[in-house]
Write a protein that binds this DNA or RNA. Structure first.
Lengths: 338, 338
DNA sequence: TTGTATGCGTTATCAT
DNA sequence: ATGATAACGCATACAA
């Protein structure tokens, strides 16, 4: 019993079935045809001995580990609050499973530097999937240096590649602006943050493009993604000259800040000020008033991203960047009366 | 250049340093003494050739992969809302890194069944860490069947093991009841859910134990972890006979439900009804009124858990279950006047 | 359709 | 203090 428990090798199966290890190998890999009667015998013996090819031996022989690395560049409160990220992890791992990859999780930031070295240099992974990657992250640098393949959800600013998927930020931006205009908000501001992420850059660009022709684009920058920072920045713009009558916030949390700023400035939401958030997190439905937000689809993005990486690793690289559509969820924060 | 890029083997280093591969191996493993001058030469050559021992070859030779699996049994909204879980993932992986383990993430539930087989049977992992494990989960069953070592955060109900860490639920329960009593709430109810997790069972037991002697323990069971379910259950108890004057909720989200129930029953919080939540999530500080809650320390739990698993894998198993302390954060929801 | 023999890059067991 | 060489368990080029 003890010897049969997982310690069976290809030799014992070959012996038991009266064939060579080559045949056993091919029965499991399917890489060459095996007589159906022979195959049946092999499988029967393998089943009886609870045989499964050892992944470590396969890895040494083939040079491939069938393991991918995953890094999500955001962490802490942002990760907690954002259903896009929270769903992405399980979704990505499930998508990888279907392609028979195992998944190593890599924490973001400088603290992961010591992790990156053994992972990349010891060749424990075939490739990596990066979510909202940052150019100077130690992991990204290591992948680049060691020439390990990767794909990303969100582009890497300053890096040219076709291997990424993303939400359709430009379309989202247009959709939101149309929504606001229909409700009579005609001086919308973009409430954003100074972060070096592609989606941040995309919103700024899309907002500018949409505003061109009308007045100058109102862009309000909060110092970070916190509600407090958003409140301060929004309040300043509301009390300044030419105040906006709506905020399109690139995260729900910023939206909460905008709501508070409106209250402190003595304006009512939605009558005086409209507020739109992003990612449709639980904060959006629980705020007062509930926040109009944009729902994104992490499961879809995950599946597409793994597909992309898989075909890159197998050299079937005819893919192009993939764009995932999203959906506007209208709530009270933009339900202006009359 | 191309040949030197990560494809260097122990042979080339041995050649370059004029020693045997045995010596090179020992320089890197430290498993036997090497003359300091020899060591210096070896390291110099290794550095020049960018040599790192291949993990796959090490794994085949030693039978150990230096990879751990991690499974968190909760997902979706619960994972999003609960800072304990959200911080646990990065914290666990960092703790694993320090022990030189890579980390494979295993999604919870039946969908992971197809994942579990290759991971466990192909011996890709040395051991597993389970967070709030469930007895019938395919992964847990596979580990058991294949005799793979594991430790857990939270016990597995119906499974006897010393390899777990947990928050000090009994102490938390006492702390909360003392807090409520001091504020004059003397008919507290436990608001819980019917889930087969050790912490759920622990709270029920601790609450019963604390209530013994006084009146009978008031235990209100919501059908699930949602705010809506909590509201319904709490409302029913408030409108029944012998209504409670406080709710100790085993999750912040249940606390939000209790707040709504109080409002619908025409009671004010905190004057008529006190409410306490758990895990001190962002929902707690953002609710109206802000929720008194219990802060737990995932980073600490993570480090201890990895330690435990590591020593189990190395056979240094003198460890005992570890209990992590927590902290009560008092807010307006229990700030009864007078 | 199947088998033989070599390679994958280490670690570990003996030697010296 | 250091070496030679046999595992480790599979995949695969070459043969038959």
């Amino acid at each position: 019993v003890a010897s049969a428990n997982g310690r069976t090798t290809i030799f014992e199966v070959a012996d038991g079935a009266g064939v060579s290890i080559t045949t056993v190998s091919h029965v499991f890999s399917g890489k060459r045809h095996v007589n159906s009667e022979t195959r049946r015998r092999v499988l029967e013996v393998a089943d009886r001995l609870a045989y499964r090819p050892r992944a470590t031996a396969q890895a040494l022989a083939t040079g491939r580990t069938n393991t991918l690395a995953l890094q999500i560049s955001v962490s802490g409160a942002e990760l907690v609050l954002n259903p896009f990220f929270a769903s992405l992890l399980p979704a990505l791992s499930l998508a990888a499973i279907e392609r028979e990859y195992a998944f190593v999780y890599v924490p973001p930031g400088a603290e992961s530097a010591s992790f990156v070295e053994p992972l990349v240099d010891q060749r424990r992974i075939d490739g990596a999937l990066l979510v909202d990657p940052i150019r100077d992250d130690p992991f990204v640098l290591a992948l680049e240096r060691s020439n390990v393949a990767f794909a990303s959800v969100g582009r890497i600013l300053g890096w040219n590649s076709d291997y990424w998927v993303d939400n359709d930020h430009a379309a989202i931006c247009r959709k939101v602006l149309v929504h606001l205009a229909r409700r009579g908000y005609n001086r919308p501001a973009l409430l954003t943050v100074p972060m070096e992420l592609s989606y941040v850059a995309d919103y700024t660009a899309a907002f500018r493009a949409a505003a061109a022709g009308s007045s100058e684009a109102r862009i309000v920058v909060a110092s970070d993604l916190s509600e407090r920072a958003a409140e301060a920045a929004a309040l300043e713009s509301l009390t300044g000259s030419d105040p906006p009558d709506a905020f399109f916030c690139i995260h729900d949390q910023l939206g909460l800040g905008a709501l508070r700023a409106a209250a402190r400035a003595g304006r009512s939401v939605p009558d005086d000020i409209g507020v739109v958030g992003m990612t449709d997190s639980l904060l959006a439905s629980h705020s007062d008033p509930p926040l109009t937000s944009v729902r994104v689809f992490p499961e879809r993005a995950a599946a597409v991203a793994i597909d992309l990486l898989d075909s890159l690793l197998r050299g079937i690289g005819t893919n192009v960047p993939a764009i995932i559509p999203s959906r506007l969820i209208a709530r009270a924060s933009t339900a202006r009366r009359g």
